[in-house]
Simulated scan of single mutants.
Amino acid sequence: MPNHHKESVRQLLADLHAERVATMDPKALKINIDQRQLLVDTADRKRFAKAGDTLTSFSLQEVNTGTLTLDSLLEQGPAVLVFFRFAGCPACNIALPYYQRQLAPSLKKLGATLVAVSPQVPERLVDIKLRHNFDFQVASDIDNKLARQLGILYTFDQPSQQAGIASGKPIGEVTGTGTWELPMPTILAIDRERTIRFIDVAPDWLVRTEAEPILDAVKEIVAEQELSV
C-alpha cells in the first residue's frame, strides 16, 4: 500500500493509463489518447476563470438535498468545487475517492465546504455518491451553466463522438444533457467574498490536482478570515 500521506492522484491515474495500454483495444485506446492530447493542444486557456475573479451567483442541484447556492456554500467558510465528468467516468471514480481520503477530512476541520460537480442529471449522478459513500456533496451543474461561466467546457471530437454512438452510449444520453459537452476536470477554492483564490483546470482528464495545493489555498483563506475577525 502507498504511504497514506504520499498518495498521489496523478500516480493513481498513470496506473489506470498503464493498465489500459496493457489491456485495451488499441483502436479505442488511440481515440482516448488522441482526444486528451487534442484538448491539451487546443484548450483556450485565456477563457479559463482565474484566481482573483469574482463569481456571480449560481445554483447547483445536490443529488440528495436539492438546491445549493453560492451564498449557502459560503455560509460557514470557504468552498471547494471539484468539477468531474460523469458518474461512470473511470478516472473520476479514482480521483473523487482520492479526494475523499486526502482532502475531505482536512477541509472539514478547516470549516470549508467540498462539492463535487458534474453536468450529469441528479438522478444519474447520485450513483457515484452512493457507490463510494462520499461524505461531501455531489451536485449537478444544470445545462453546464457554471462550467460555461468558468470557461472550462469542451466538446467531444469526431472520433470520440463516433465511438460513443457506435457503443450505444453517446455522452449526452449517459449524462442526460443531450449534448457532447463536458467540463474539463477543474478544482477551485472560493473565499467568502466570492473570489476565486485557487483554480486548476486539467484539459487532459487523466491529470488531476493533488490535494496539497488545494489545502494550502484554503488554509490561507481561513488564516486571513481569522485575522479579520
Rank of each mutant, 00 (worst) to 15 (best):
Q120I: 05
P97Q: 03
L153N: 07
S118M: 09
L68W: 10
F58C: 02
L13S: 06
Q76K: 15
D34T: 08
F136G: 05
K27Q: 14
Q149T: 15
D15P: 02
A95E: 13
L146T: 07
T113A: 11
I31V: 15
K50W: 01
T113P: 01
A104S: 14
K109I: 05
P122Y: 04
L70A: 11
Q37L: 12
A43D: 09
L153C: 09
A116H: 01
A18S: 13
L73Y: 03
Q76T: 13
A43C: 05
R20K: 12
A87I: 01
Q137W: 09
T23W: 09
L103N: 09
N32S: 14
Q61R: 14
L74V: 08
S57P: 14
Q102S: 15
L107W: 07
V40A: 09
D41L: 06
M24I: 05
L130R: 15
Q161V: 15
A95W: 00
K129C: 01
K50E: 11
C92L: 03
L150K: 04
F134H: 06
T69I: 08
A28K: 15
F48Y: 13
C89S: 13
A79G: 09
V117D: 04
T42A: 02
D143W: 05
R148V: 02
N93I: 04
L39Y: 13
D34H: 04
P119I: 05
N64L: 14
Q161G: 01
A139C: 08
Y99N: 01
K129W: 08
A28D: 12
L60E: 02
A87T: 05
Q102Y: 00
T65M: 03
V40E: 13
D157H: 10
V126I: 15
P26G: 02
A87E: 11
V63N: 08
L73R: 00
K46V: 07
D53L: 02
S106G: 01
A91K: 00
L130P: 00
P105A: 05
P26A: 06
T69R: 02
R45M: 10
K109P: 00
T155R: 14
K46T: 15
Q120F: 07
Q35R: 12
C92T: 11
S160K: 14
N133W: 00
A139P: 10
A95V: 02
Q37T: 12
F86V: 01
F84W: 12
A14E: 15
L60G: 06
L146P: 02
R148W: 01
G151S: 06
P122A: 09
V82D: 13
A51H: 07
D157S: 14
D143S: 12
